[in-house]
């Protein structure tokens, strides 16, 4: 439906002072969108290539890894990006369950949990990838890994 320009618009993003609750709200949509399109395609592609046989599967893995099996730059960007999106969407989804129950709307509580979701997702992503890449990091730093 086209907008009637004689009618006023409600104040939108640019008119509000940003708060943690707004950030986490828009992040929920962005990460959901990313997980749906990128994650959905990779998930279905991974399974289809596995079902098509070893040669096709290796070609698919080759999009994200180098010869030795370690991840390449594409694998790192998609892997870390999807991990962060997954944790953000998961943690905020759990926060939404609490909000759906009618709890957590007090300004300070809402702000605290919004920040916790954003920070927790970043921490979880760093922790998981540090663990995954530990052998590589160890080899780069000192050799004895």
């Amino acid at each position: 439906m086209s907008r009637n320009h004689s009618r006023p618009l409600s104040p939108h993003l640019t008119h509000w002072r940003w708060g943690a609750n707004m950030l986490v709200s828009i992040l929920h949509r962005i990460t959901g969108f990313g997980l749906a399109i990128v994650g959905g395609l990779i998930f279905a592609g991974w399974l289809l290539s596995a079902a098509s046989g070893e040669e096709t599967y290796n070609w698919f893995l080759g999009l994200f890894t180098v010869e030795s099996g370690a991840i390449n730059i594409v694998g790192a960007v998609f892997g870390i990006g999807l991990t962060w999106a997954f944790f953000t969407h998961l943690f905020n989804g759990l926060r939404h369950f609490v909000l759906d129950a009618g709890a957590g709307y007090e300004l300070n509580t809402n702000r605290t949990w919004s920040i916790a979701v954003v920070a927790g997702a970043i921490l979880a992503t760093v922790a998981l990838w540090a663990w995954l890449l530990w052998p590589t990091i160890g080899a780069l730093v000192g050799g004895e890994g």
Partner: peptide
């Protein structure tokens, strides 16, 4: 189309592997 199509691809692929069709 995307959701149902990709979902069908994923489910059929899992079934094919589970029933031993992928070598």
């Amino acid at each position: 189309f995307f959701a149902v199509g990709a979902g069908a691809i994923a489910i059929f692929s899992i079934a094919r592997i589970a029933f031993g069709g992928a070598v």
